[in-house]
Nucleic acid binder design. Structure first.
Lengths: 196, 196
DNA sequence: TCTGGAAGTTACAGACCGGTAACACCCTAG
DNA sequence: CTAGGGTGTTACCGGTCTGTAACTTCCAGA
């Protein structure tokens, strides 16, 4: 049982945390609710008392992931108060670090790859949360005084997203090793062209 | 039955083609062998006479995909014989076109997201085929006279990969719309810096 | 016309899936 | 002490999954 995470807390929290971990490691369709509840040290009935379906649990996991990712931005602000450019570089470093932590890509991207039904409830929240993340990165670029903030943010975002899937397909020794160099080069280039 | 592709040909070919189509649309774990054989106008026993398991079928589908993608490069050479820079721009246009054809990402990336077992037979071939694709793009960049060919190829590759997952998560109207602008800008920038 | 192999058919095994029912338990708030 | 809500337990439903067995049908080539 490598999927522990059974610290004593309220069953709902344990289920949510365990499900997040197992969905991340083994994929959504690769994990059944029985396995989740067992790893969470509880049982199926309790799961269905707190979540109305597996799909509902999936959505809650994605929201929890996004909340955790959102908290990351606050640490940048705390670490470099007011210095938006430093925060942008901190984002690059953090992103690069994530590439080497584990070989699994973004949970939302993976979920979108697995859940192909066009009206699956998870697809709505994935789009919402991804768009919110884009807004934050665009805002950071703009506040850092970069002229074409949207273009830089989108480029960095696509690079990072691509690096994550690259790690998942060819491993951490592939093209993703150049991510920092690419990102830093882009920031320099965009700062050189035009400032707000 | 929207997953037709039942033209009269040998059962093995029909199964392979149908499986490629259905895996692409609905994901690998989202399609059972019964559904494949039915859509291919044959039956399960015939599938298992030609493929030793579903995993084997998956691997063959990935190889077939890669073969089709490989043929794409030959069309570039045929269209712009000897003009490697033109072929690189053709790659950019082709990549951009793929972003708008359907909302599903790269089959290999999606497969890697779904098949999480570290020793799954598909993971080997995904890595092999992705590395082969990288070699081709690096070669194209180098032959186009670009100094840092590997870095440009990896950057373009990551951008494209990221654009495909972006289409899958937020749709074709998201950051991926800027893909051509990003790619062309990078090529210009790399050509300006140093040439071979 | 005969024959052999490829393909189709039906049924089944064994496992797993998401989800529910009915009931026993425990622990805390009143 | 008691009542009640949250939790645990067991069993079950109907469905789907990969994979196999045994048998029939068809068709091309000799």
């Amino acid at each position: 049982m490598t999927d522990g995470v059974v610290e004593r807390s309220r069953p709902r929290d344990r289920i949510l945390e365990t499900a997040r971990d197992m969905f991340h490691k083994h994929g959504i369709k690769g994990v059944g609710v029985d396995a989740i509840t067992e790893a969470a040290g509880t049982n199926k009935m309790t799961l269905y008392r707190h979540f109305e379906s597996k799909d509902d649990l999936i959505v809650e996991c994605l929201r929890a992931n996004a909340a955790k990712a959102g908290a990351m931005w606050d640490t940048f602000e705390a670490e470099f108060p007011g210095d938006k450019l430093a925060q942008l570089h901190a984002w690059v470093r953090k992103a690069a670090a994530m590439l080497n932590t584990d070989g699994r890509g973004c949970d939302m991207a993976n979920a979108a790859a697995e859940l192909t039904e066009p009206d699956h409830p998870a697809r709505r929240v994935i789009k919402e949360l991804k768009e919110a993340q884009r807004e934050r990165l665009v805002g950071l670029c703009r506040d850092a005084g970069i002229g074409q903030a949207e273009l830089l943010a989108d480029t960095l975002s696509l690079l990072f997203e691509g690096a994550r899937v690259s790690v998942q397909t060819v491993g951490a020794e592939g093209p993703s090793t150049q991510f920092v160099r690419m990102a830093e080069g882009l920031i320099v280039s965009f700062r050189g062209s035009a400032a707000g």
